[in-house]
Amino acid sequence: PGLLEPTSSLVRVAKSASTLGIAIEGGANTRQPIPRIVTIQRGGSAHNCGQLKVGQVILEVNGATMRGREHRDAARLIAEAFKTKERDYVDFLVTDFN
């Protein structure tokens, strides 16, 4: 995973707050075909992690690709990754290249 994305990086976000605290836009069949981070809320898990940035494109979540997923499907997948008690973190593969 990620081998074809030379500028990608894996970011592990610990569930350190009750919310993930990111806003995303985009998804299949929109102008932004892969979801992009548009906001990082102060005090959320993503902000606490310190490694996610506004403008980054989310390629994978816990190893699952975002390619071909419509916005609601991508958002649901991220929400479920944060909600599940199986892991106390969410892994994001992100790239600065849009």
């Binding site: 806003a23 995303i24 836009e25 998804g27 069949n29 929109t30 102008r31 932004q32 916005h71 609601r72």
Partner: peptide
């Protein structure tokens, strides 16, 4: 001639 984007903008979801 300039090519126009026909794809719609996306919703934004807060997670």
């Amino acid at each position: 001639r300039e090519k126009r984007l026909t794809l719609p903008p996306s919703e934004i979801t807060l997670l």
